[in-house]
Design a protein around this nucleic acid. Structure first.
Lengths: 284, 284
DNA sequence: ACCGGTTACGTATCCCGTAATCATT
DNA sequence: AATGATTACGGGATACGTAACCGGT
C-alpha cells in the first residue's frame, strides 16, 4: 500500500473495500498520533513518520515469516494434497507451488487436476486438503477466499526501463532473458503458462541459462538482463528495491482464483502454512 | 505468561479472565497447528515450538518498542500534564515517571497532586491530559484502565538466592545495596516509597552509590550486590535472564491503581505513548 | 475437596461492506 | 464528470466475562 501510493488500489490487492483501508490507516495514525500518509488528490504518499513505521512493518513481517518457517520445520511435515481445476493447475499453480517449496523445503506437495466441481466435491470429502479453482465455491460447507491472482512478472535491475510499469515480450528479448535450464520444472511451468496466453518462448531471446533462481536474481540485480519469475519468488527483492517488477504486455493470468477448503476441518500445520502463503498479500 | 508457567496468574497480570487467556493461546495454537504449551496439573510449560514462538514474540515486541520510540522522536514533544492522587503521586508514580523519561527523553512531564475527585474533575475539564488514581473512575465520561501495580523490585545476579522469589530487607543489606547517589530524584523517590511502607533506608546497607542506572544494573549483573529499582527499569534485563527480580518482603505497593482519561479526547502522541507505557504488561 | 485449565453461552465491541458525501482535476 | 478519500450506518464476526465442568493431586 505504501508502494502503491493509492488506498483504492491497495484495497483491491487486499481484497478489501476502500473505506476499510482508510479506516485501518486512520486507526494506526490515531494510535501514533501522527499522519502516516499525506493525502493528495492523485493518491497518497508516505510521510517521514510513515516511512519509519513502514520500515519497521517490513522487519516485523520478515520476523513473522521466519517464525512460521522455523515452527514448520520443527516436526516432520505431512503431505499436502491439493486439488486444482485444469487451467489453474496447469498454468498458474506450478509456479506458486515451486515458490512455496523454495521456502518450505520440508513440505511434500501433491497436486491433482480435476474439474472445478470434482475438486470441490473431493475437498468436502477430505480427499483433498484444499482446492484451488477459478471463481468462488458453489458447494455449501466450503469456504472460498480470493487468492493473489498475478503469477508471473518480469524483473529487471531497478535502473532499467525507468518509469515503465510494463514491457512487451519484444523489449524483454532485446535486453536478453535469464532463465532456468531447459528441463527445469519451473522453466517448463513458465513456458506452459506463456504458451497458454499466446506468448511463445521462442519470441524471447535467452541470454543465459542458470541452474538456481538465486543466481538468476543476482544476475538480474547486476544488470545482466531480465527474467520472468513468479511474483512470489521475487516479492522480497522487489520490496527491498533490489529488483524492479514489471507486468508483461499480453500476459494476463488474472483469473479470479479462489482457495477453497472445509471451514470445519482443522488443517495440518503445513496445510495451514500453504494456505496463508497462497492468500498472503504480495505488495502492501 | 511463558515465564509465569500459569494461565491463571498470567490472566491476573493481564487483567483478564482465565478463560480469555486460554482462548487466546488456543487461537494461536490453532493458527500454527502445534501445541505451544504442555498442560500439567500444576501449571503449564512451553513446548519446543512454544519456545520458538516466544523468542520471536520478544524480538517483535522489541521492534514495536523501538518503532514507537523512533516515531515519537520525530517531532518535538509537547508537555504531558499528569494528575495523580496523593499516595500514588508521591510514592508509586515517581519511579514510573523516571523509567518513562529514561526511554523517552524528549518528553516533558508535569505531575500535579490533587485529591482523587479533583483529579477526575480536571481530567474531564482537560486541565490534565490524564490522571492516575487509586480505584476505578467514578465520574461519567471518564474511562479507567487498570495499571501494572507493582512498582519496586529487588534485583540481583541470576545466581544469587537460587529458587527464592522474595527477600527480606535484611538479606538485601547482607549482600550490599547498590543505589543512586543521595540527592538523585529516583533515590529520593525510592526512599519515600520504602518509608511509606515502613522500611527505612537505613535498614539497608549501601555498598556503593553510582550515578547512572545502567552502571547499577551492570554492577548487579556482575554480582557486586543487589539493588532496588522500578520494575519498568529492569523488565528487559529480567526477561533476558541477565538479572533476577525478587519481591521485597514487607513491601506491598499493590494498590489497584487506575489510569483515567477522557475517552472522547484524542491525545497527543506523547500522551498516547505514556498511557501505553503505563498499561503495558511487564511480564508476559 | 481444591487448584488449574477447558467448555458453554450471553453480551459488547470491533471491523467490514454499502451507500452517500466531499474534494480535486 | 470522474477519480479518490472520508463519513454514516447496519450486520457479522470476534473477544471478553460468568458460570458450569473436568482432571489430577
Amino acid at each position: 500500500m505504501a508502494r502503491i501510493k493509492s488506498f483504492s488500489k491497495a484495497a483491491k490487492l487486499l481484497h478489501l473495500s476502500q473505506p476499510a483501508v482508510s479506516a485501518q490507516v486512520a486507526t494506526v495514525e490515531r494510535r501514533f498520533g501522527v499522519r502516516l500518509f499525506d493525502r493528495y488528490s492523485h493518491g497518497v504518499e508516505l510521510t517521514r513518520a510513515g516511512h519509519v513505521v513502514f520500515d519497521y512493518a517490513e522487519k516485523i513481517n520478515d520476523l513473522v515469516e521466519s517464525m512460521e518457517r522455523e515452527v514448520g520445520a520443527l516436526e516432520a511435515d505431512s503431505e499436502i494434497v491439493i486439488g486444482a481445476s485444469p487451467t489453474v493447475g496447469n498454468y498458474a499453480l506450478p509456479c506458486t507451488l515451486w515458490a512455496f517449496k523454495q521456502k518450505y523445503p520440508a513440505c511434500v506437495l501433491r497436486l491433482e487436476i480435476e474439474t472445478t466441481q470434482a475438486v470441490q466435491k473431493k475437498v468436502l470429502e477430505n480427499v483433498f486438503d484444499l482446492g484451488v479453482i477459478e471463481g468462488p465455491a458453489e458447494l455449501a460447507g466450503l469456504k472460498a477466499v480470493p487468492m493473489q491472482a498475478e503469477q508471473l512478472v518480469a524483473v529487471c535491475a531497478p535502473g532499467a526501463w525507468p518509469g515503465r510499469e510494463s514491457v512487451s515480450p519484444e523489449e524483454l528479448a532485446e535486453r536478453g532473458l535469464l532463465t532456468h535450464e531447459r528441463g527445469s520444472g519451473l522453466r517448463e511451468a513458465i513456458e506452459a503458462c506463456l504458451n497458454h496466453v499466446g506468448i511463445g518462448f521462442d519470441r524471447l531471446k535467452v541470454a543465459a541459462e542458470m541452474s538456481t533462481t538465486d543466481a538468476i536474481k543476482s544476475a538480474v540485480e547486476s544488470g545482466f538482463g531480465a527474467a520472468i519469475l513468479p511474483v512470489l519468488a521475487v516479492q522480497r527483492e522487489v520490496r527491498r528495491g533490489l529488483l524492479k517488477a514489471l507486468s508483461i504486455e499480453g500476459l494476463d493470468l488474472t483469473m479470479d482464483i479462489h482457495l477453497v477448503y472445509r471451514e470445519d476441518k482443522q488443517h495440518s500445520r503445513s496445510a495451514g502454512q500453504f494456505m496463508r502463503f497462497l492468500t498472503r498479500s504480495v505488495y502492501c
